[in-house]
Structures are given as C-alpha cells and as structure tokens.
C-alpha cells in the first residue's frame, strides 16, 4: 500500500510539474519545474527496481542537463517572459491534437494485455548492468561512445571559432556572425 502511495506521489509530481513546464510563460520557472519532472521520473525508476537508472537520471539530467539549461537561460538574452502572445489560433488546434493523442494512448494503455513481468526483487542492478554492458551488449555500449564522440565533434564544429577574428580579411569590421552568404 505504501508502494502505491509512493507511486501516485511520484506520478503526480511528474505530471503536474510537466504541465507547469509547458504552460509557464517564464522560462526560468519552467526550467526549475523541469527539475521536479525529472526527479519524479527518477522516483518511478527507483520503484521499478531500476536503482542504477534512477541514480543516473538524477546525476545526469538534474545534475548536468538541467543546470546547463538554466545556465544557458541566464547567459543568453532570451526575454524572461515569453515573447509574443500565445494566440488561440495556435492553442486550440494544438490542444485538440494533444487531447486526441491522449485519448488514443489511453485506449492503448488501458485496453492492452501487456506482457507483464513478475515483480522483481529490489536487488542492486549495477553489477548485472555492468556485466551485460561488457558481454551481451558490448556492441551497443561501444556504439554509444561513437554517438557521444560525434556529438562532441559536432559541438566543436558548430560552436567553436578556431579562426582569429583578424583573419576575416577585408570585411573585418563587419559582424562575423549571422552573415548571409551569397545573397
């Protein structure tokens, strides 16, 4: 019973804070609210006996991604309040679509005999995860490292300016960013 209570608690935390993320017009508030969403998901993982996943969720998403998001918001000049109105013309179709999608998923989730697993014991999973990363799943594990490498190179290519500004030639005075080529 206390398990049920915890589940509904985490679920409510996740869903309600997710609503706030979407509907808040203040991007800093939305970012902070995301913290609770991610934490709620971590709680759900923990309840599914995925302790390592839950810890990773907290460390990577809350500790890393979320802090980055907030830093980005602070260091760029995005207007704190949402720019422009959120007109009904866009809100209504989006809302209808979202509701239809929800109805569809609700029908799927409630009307389906899922391939359920017996409840597993809440033993630590870390050792078994580590073992399978280096045996059965060694290929995807290494594959992910390639994805991360590609992402790092990508970030360097898209962001880093290797060339000194004086190298810009005749148009040195012109702003180096946002130039449109061949226009």
């Amino acid at each position: 019973m206390s398990g049920d209570l915890a589940f509904y608690g985490f679920a409510a935390l996740t869903v309600l804070s997710a609503f706030y993320v979407v509907f808040s017009r203040n991007i800093v508030h939305a970012g902070f609210s995301l913290l609770f969403t991610l934490f709620g998901v971590a709680g759900l993982y923990a309840m599914l006996a995925a302790d390592f996943l839950a810890a990773t969720q907290v460390i990577v998403y809350i500790g890393g991604v979320l802090v980055l998001i907030l830093f980005t918001v602070m260091m760029t000049r995005i207007p704190r309040r949402g720019a422009g109105g959120r007109g009904l013309d866009r809100f209504v179709p989006a809302g209808v679509f979202a509701l239809l999608l929800f109805a569809l998923l609700y029908k799927v989730i409630t009307g389906t005999p899922w391939a359920e697993k017996a409840p597993v014991s809440a033993d630590p999973t870390t050792a078994r995860l580590g073992a399978s990363f280096l045996t059965d799943f060694v290929f995807p594990f290494e594959f992910v490292s390639l994805i991360l490498l590609a992402a790092m190179i990508g970030a360097a290519i898209l962001i880093r300016d290797r060339r000194p500004a004086a190298d810009d030639g005749a148009g040195g005075a012109a702003a180096p960013t946002g130039e449109e080529e061949r226009s």
């Binding site: 290519i157 898209l158 080529e181």
Partner: peptide, 22 residues
Amino acid sequence: LSVELVSLTSYVMAGYMRTSLR
C-alpha cells in the same frame, strides 16, 4: 542507436557552414 548516430552526424553536417544563416 543507429538512427540516432546517422541523425546526429546529419545535424552537424547540415550546419557545417556555421557563418551562413541558412
């Protein structure tokens, strides 16, 4: 994973001309 790898490299290559707005 393979779809993600191809997508990620694609994103980078699409934005390769980083001084071009387009």
